[in-house]
């Protein structure tokens, strides 16, 4: 379980979008890592982001807030944020939070790419 509690953010460029893959856990102590990775992409003019949560073990409300802000900003700038690869427990938190109604959630990365 080494590094299970750390967070790194990997990004992959696709012709349609940038895919953002947080690896590890997002909580109040490290949410800035995710926030600045996203800001960098959006500030560089990227409008469409796909968040692939395949390697995300855990997210708290601090992380959820960043996702909400990101979805708002991409929408306001004429782009989109999509979310895929949610583990069951994370999908449950999205549901409780009402995020399933306001965010675009896909089963897989290929489904998210196809939705663009």
């Amino acid at each position: 379980m080494t590094n299970e509690n750390a967070l790194s953010v990997q990004t992959e460029r696709n012709e349609k979008a940038v895919i953002v893959c947080p690896v590890g856990r997002v909580d109040g102590s490290n949410v800035g890592v995710l926030e600045s990775a996203i800001r960098e992409l959006l500030d560089a003019g990227q409008k469409t982001l796909i968040f692939d949560f395949e390697e995300l073990n855990y997210i708290s409300s601090a992380g959820l807030r960043v996702l909400l802000v990101t979805a708002r900003r991409t929408q306001a700038e004429g782009g989109k944020a999509l979310f895929c690869g949610l583990a069951e427990h994370i999908a449950h938190v999205f549901e409780i939070s009402g995020f399933t109604n306001i965010l675009t959630i896909c089963q897989s990365r290929s489904e998210a790419l196809a939705a663009l």
Binding site: S61, A62, V69, Q75, I96, G98, N101, I102
Partner: peptide, 18 residues
């Protein structure tokens, strides 16, 4: 308000609700 739209959804208050 978990039924609010993306634009209107308040940013705070989620932690203790969870």
């Amino acid at each position: 308000d978990t039924g609010a739209s993306l634009e209107e959804r308040p940013l705070g208050g989620l932690g203790l609700f969870l």
